[in-house]
Simulated scan of single mutants.
Amino acid sequence: MTAFASRSGHHGPVSWVWDLRSVNGRGLDLRLRLPDGIEGLESEARKKLGAALTRGNVTLGLKMTREASETELTLDPDHLARVLRALDEIQSRAVEMGVTLAQPTAADVLTQRGVLAQGQPETAADPELPRLLLADLDSLLADFLAMRDSEGAALAGLMNDQIAAIDTLVAEAEARLPDRGDQTRAALRRALDRITAEGAPVEEDRLAQELALIAVKNDVTEELDRLRAHIGAARDLLGQGGAVGRKLDFLAQEFNREANTLCSKAQDKALTRIGLDLKAVIDQMREQTQNVE
């Protein structure tokens, strides 16, 4: 889920820079940092991100700048009319008093405070700008998803290696079972010999029941079979692609549960070592599943 993309553009005097980044997250958390005043931009951006992404802490930012230009000098018509009326009244009073005044020039009028202003029109006033920004967002999102795909391909290779390591360890555990069975029977025989040597009476039926219970309790065949099934399911998920992060996360928990049970039932040094190695690889895989969408 970790990725980053950036894209810049311009339209007339307006320039912008988009950036989109994400880090690991259990769900989809969208954080948008967009300038105010552009109608519909945030809602459309959320819609596009929500349709393309399903997981991760995602931050989308947009920075906009406007170049200053002489074309941004604007007249205030109302204030200009007030200035011209005032000048007309001054000329009329001067004539009544016999005073001759020079006619004001346009430059004189423009120097009056408030007649001419250097302003920046609102960004949203340009109806073309939101469309261009959203089109650029589509390209940004495509670059972002391409980076995610590249990261995902590398991650899939790593996780397949980890699943192969689990497969190898399960095979080692299965190969260990015959020797473990012989050792378990020998240990039970020694324990039985100690009991009978003390002269304690032994009921054959009860003894058979207890031995059967011990055998069932220590049997790890089901755990190994479930680990085999989980290996197949994990490989299928990685092969199908798409948003499989949550499923892989759940599957990693199931892997860990079986490895814990294997360790608790082992009663064999070699099998315990295999179980601990399994837990180590499974823990590494669980960490990587946090990076999968």
Rank of each mutant, 00 (worst) to 15 (best):
T2P: 00
A3H: 02
R7Y: 05
G9D: 02
P13M: 05
D19Q: 11
S22L: 03
V23K: 11
G25C: 08
L34M: 06
I38D: 06
I38C: 09
S43H: 00
S43Q: 00
R46H: 05
T59A: 09
L62I: 01
S69E: 10
T74R: 11
L75Y: 07
D76A: 08
A86T: 14
I90R: 13
T100S: 09
L101Q: 07
V109E: 05
L110M: 15
L110E: 12
L116H: 10
P121W: 04
A125Y: 10
D126Y: 00
E128P: 06
R131K: 13
L133I: 08
A135W: 02
L140H: 09
D143Q: 11
S150R: 09
A153K: 12
M159F: 07
M159S: 08
I166V: 15
D167L: 03
E172D: 10
E174Y: 03
L177A: 11
R180N: 04
R180D: 08
R180C: 10
D182Q: 14
R185V: 13
L192F: 08
I195T: 15
E203N: 15
A208F: 11
E210V: 14
A212L: 13
V220D: 04
T221F: 03
E222R: 03
R228G: 07
I231R: 02
A234S: 14
R235S: 13
L237T: 06
G239P: 06
Q240I: 13
R246Y: 01
E254I: 01
N260F: 08
S264P: 09
D268I: 04
A270T: 15
A270V: 14
L271S: 09
D277T: 03
K279W: 04
V281M: 05
D283F: 14
E287V: 15
Q288F: 08
Q288T: 12
Q290W: 06
V292S: 01
